[in-house]
């Protein structure tokens, strides 16, 4: 008796929470394709707001994609060898370094952006270029890449595998290429999808680092929320959903896959 009542209560809470999360998303999608949201759905459906978003903000969408791609390349170049280095060189130095590069997970992006602005803000060429935003994105996403790969590397007996390859005549670089990278693949994939997803959605740092000529998708969103009519803002949000939701699902799939290897 008690059991079924508890279950009912649990179900109610779960469904309420789902509704709380889902209803605004639906509203946003509806508002983005409704001719006049103030009059309601009866005013008819239209794609004109989506086209309007494309006219106004296509640049920001492309910039975000370009940033996400660049961010992925840089985090791979820095993060993949670093994860290997951390896995192979356990000790106080690696622990401190890992803890240190994880700071951007904990410290609010606003604080990091202020720090970057104060040190590099006076370097005009750098400050005004897209690479300045890229630095912020790499700073924020790098720990995810490193940890994702590190988790997979830590779960296998990397040291013995490498000793095996070394006994067969493989140099350090050959071992890295033939053994480490292929076996770290699930972690690299999960890390890459996480980096791209986070980079496309990053706002806190980007808002502070961007210039009027370099607006990313979320910066454009904030802009449209403040200055555009509700339908345009909603349509823009809809575009963002279309971009981010498949990425999120791919990321969750890849992370679960990597997780299975780890445990």
């Amino acid at each position: 008796m008690f059991k079924s009542k508890t279950k009912l209560l649990q179900l109610t809470v779960t469904l309420t929470a789902c509704a709380f999360l889902l209803v605004p998303m639906i509203l946003s999608v509806l508002a983005g394709v409704t001719a006049n949201y103030f009059q309601g759905i009866s005013s008819g459906f239209t794609l004109k707001w989506v086209f309007r978003v494309w006219e106004l903000y296509a640049d920001s969408i492309f910039l975000s994609m370009w940033l996400a791609f660049s961010c992925l390349v840089v985090t791979l170049i820095i993060g993949l060898p670093a994860a290997y280095g951390l896995a192979r060189n356990p000790g106080w130095f690696s622990r401190i370094l890992e803890e240190f590069i994880s700071l951007p997970l904990a410290v609010p992006g606003l604080a990091l952006a202020l720090a970057l602005l104060q040190l590099y803000g006076s370097m005009k060429g750098f400050r005004a270029s897209w690479t300045f935003i890229l630095v912020g994105h790499v700073l924020y996403t790098l720990p995810f890449m490193v940890r994702s790969i590190l988790a997979v590397l830590a779960a296998m007996d990397l040291k013995t595998l490498e000793e095996g390859a070394a006994s067969l005549g493989a140099s350090p670089w050959q071992r890295f290429r033939d053994i480490v990278v292929p076996n770290a693949m699930p972690g690299i994939l999960a890390g890459s999808l996480t980096v791209v997803t986070l980079s496309i959605g990053e706002f806190n740092l980007t808002w502070m680092l961007h210039t009027p000529y370099l607006k990313t998708l979320p910066v454009g969103l904030a802009d449209s929320y403040a200055s555009m009519r509700l339908e345009v803002a909603s349509a823009y949000t809809l575009v963002f959903f279309v971009l981010i939701v498949p990425l999120l699902m791919a990321m969750q799939w890849a992370s679960a896959r990597a997780q299975r290897i780890v445990s």
Binding site: I78, P81, N89, L97, A115, L116, V138, L139, S171
Partner: peptide, 30 residues
Amino acid sequence: MTNRTFVLACLTPLFIFSIAFLALPLVRLF
């Protein structure tokens, strides 16, 4: 190149990046 040098070389880009864009800016902030 010995194993140890290779491992340390792998950590170098991360080390440089985190000094330049994390450690120094935070010191400046402080």
